[in-house]
Amino acid sequence: MNIHEYQAKKLLKHYSINIPKGFIVTDAKQLDNIFFEKDKSYIAKVQIHAGARNKAGGVQKISTKQEAIGFCQKFLGRRIVTPQTPKGGKVVSAIYIEEALNGNQELYLSIFADKNKQCNIALASKEGGIDIQDAFKKSTSNIVCIDPLLGFAQFYAKKALCAFNFKKEQANKFITLLSNLFRLYKDIDAELVEINPLIDTGYDFFALDAKIVIDDNALFRQDEVLSYRDILQEEPLEYQASQNNLNYVKLDGNIAMVVNGAGLAMACLDTIEDYGGKCANFLDIKGSATKESIIKALEIIYQDSRVKVVFVNIIGGIVRCDIVANALLDFCDTYNFSLPIVARLEGANKNEAIDMLSTFKKGNIAIVKTLKEGIEKVILSAGEKL
């Protein structure tokens, strides 16, 4: 789960990490009661779950209340498109305004889980700010692998210090900063905690921008963080799926998939793409699927107007094939669903399921024996060429 920058900074502050003074605006009228100091600069930033906001004018230096009002009126309630948003952009429901700070240098600091190395990574670089990806191509970053069994220790922070040339006092403050950041990372079950840029003022460090991503699987024990969820920033169909224990990701194609198991879903998606098709979604109904959750998955697909055909690819085990067939029939009857459905069913109660689907009166459900046959059929049904 993503959270907004201002929410991330609230968490940083709680863990004794310096941030510039700021406030959140959800209505331009709120600025009537805000005092702006003369001869002082501020930074106004749109709050969306995407980066590269500056490239779309969503980050602006301001000096007066009128400039702040103008910025808020321009963006609040409207969509902004950046290189990292979907084509339709993201709705701006809040703007964060904070004091502008200057420093000796802009740094980069993050902690994230590396599944390949099976450890937590602390990544430090003296090349912070925008276009950080380009900076990582240089030899200015330091990667520190933190053993999850050992936990954080000061020698990890000292190793990260090798990326910089701090004097003793600043070096000690950096060690404390990294220690606090890792404590936050662990306490909130984060997948990523990133500060970019982290500015060095010469006497201390300040987080000018922050990004935090929480592990969805740990949200059940993160009540405070869960309250930060902004469903306006999420794809509506993906949000519906998450509320029904479904793994769903919206894609750009027109072939919908209903598959049990993430590995099978990935293999199915890749094969469809290899054969020239385009998937409308990644949808894993999971091994614990019920008739009700399968119908909910089909309802989510039903809401996607781009879909031309549905491919149901089930390996029956815990989820029996007849349960899937029952869900398909009830869904088609309830919604008068007439788009072609191609079903490949293998495993528990396969024959019963095939008998049920074969006698379906609407005739829009085709049963196939192999994955290859199914994929070729859905691609042709979608109007694509093999």
Rank of each mutant, 00 (worst) to 15 (best):
L232V: 07
D39V: 14
V368N: 09
Y335H: 08
K361W: 10
Q105I: 15
L357K: 03
D209G: 07
G128A: 02
I354A: 07
Q7P: 10
K126A: 14
R183G: 14
G51N: 05
K55C: 07
L339C: 05
I130H: 11
I95M: 13
L192Y: 01
Q243M: 01
L251G: 05
L386N: 14
P20Y: 00
E352A: 12
T176S: 14
Y42M: 12
Q240L: 12
K38P: 06
D32V: 11
E299Y: 09
T140F: 07
D187V: 08
N165L: 15
Y42T: 09
E235S: 07
S63Y: 12
M356Y: 00
Y108D: 01
Q222T: 15
E376W: 00
I146S: 00
E98P: 00
M356C: 02
F205K: 04
L371I: 14
S358D: 13
A289V: 04
A160F: 01
E67A: 01
G276I: 05
V225I: 15
R306S: 10
S139A: 15
D147Q: 09
A94T: 06
K115R: 15
I212S: 02
K126C: 15
E373D: 15
F35Q: 14
I199K: 06
A325Y: 02
V144L: 13
Y335G: 06
A68F: 04
A210D: 03
L11E: 03
I375D: 03
V307Y: 00
L269R: 00
K350S: 15
F23G: 01
C332R: 00
R183I: 14
A382C: 08
G70R: 10
G276E: 04
A100Q: 15
K372R: 14
A8H: 11
G383F: 00
D274R: 14
S227T: 03
S358G: 11
V91H: 08
Q303W: 06
G151W: 02
L371N: 11
Y42V: 06
I62K: 06
D230Q: 08
Q66Y: 11
